[in-house]
Design a protein around this nucleic acid. Sequence first.
DNA 1: AAGTAATACAACCGCGCGCTG
DNA 2: GCAGCGCGCGGTTGTATTACT
Length: 250
Amino acid sequence: MGRSPCCEKAHTNKGAWTKEEDERLVAYIRAHGEGCWRSLPKAAGLLRCGKSCRLRWMNYLRPDLKRGNFTDDEDEVIIRLHAILGNKWSLIAGQLPGRTDNEIKNYWNTHIKRKLLARGIDPQTHRPLGSAAAAAAAPGVAAHRAPALLHPATAVPALAAAKPSPAASSSDDGARSSSTSTSTGKARCPDLNLDLSVGLPPAADTPSSQPVCLCYRLGLRAGEACGCQADKPGPQGFRYFRPLEQGQYI
DNA sequence: AAGTAATACAACCGCGCGCTG
DNA sequence: GCAGCGCGCGGTTGTATTACT
């Protein structure tokens, strides 16, 4: 479908934001909240495109942003999440309060990629470097890596394929609702439902199609990121996957 | 001190998706 | 059912800063 430009480019500023523009934007959002980004610039007296205002607010001006260096813990969480989610920066950001998708994306490209390469790990596949077969088997995004991660016959690339159900948001929409909730100042995690469940192969000791929450693979315990009972083995929880051991790769 | 390369990060761009009339 | 709109995402670019020669 055809799309009109998001704004009158001829009458908008571009490039770095000035202090005055920042102040105007912050003052307006404090007074009126985050409403319609398209009409915000005019209402706030800014010669900027709505998209630009949104980006500036989300990535730089939001009061709940955590500035400063990433901690080692955050590094590891990003690496683990990227191994499973791929370049779903907004999803990853949803797990790191105070961090933005743009910030994480930049950090990944400038720091973590190099860190993984130094460890001898391919940052795209999260496999040891030089594993051509591994790379061939797992090209591109993490969803395509799922078969290597899980049972090849029944693993569901949930992120790519799942449609949201009335009961649970999922896939990319989950990402959007997650990021939306952050932008509106609501608590980030409580409503988060990544819904990264996969179907398991029928096996002697596992119920068929039992959902498995991948938060357990991330080393998260119940309540840290989602409502599953990942650390409670048995019928109440999920017991089929465990976090990676030292030296294991996805 | 000057020039160049590398790095970090803010911002832009194009596209896909959901919503609405 | 269709078309347009608005939002949000991920990839890319531009620019400022820092490190190195």
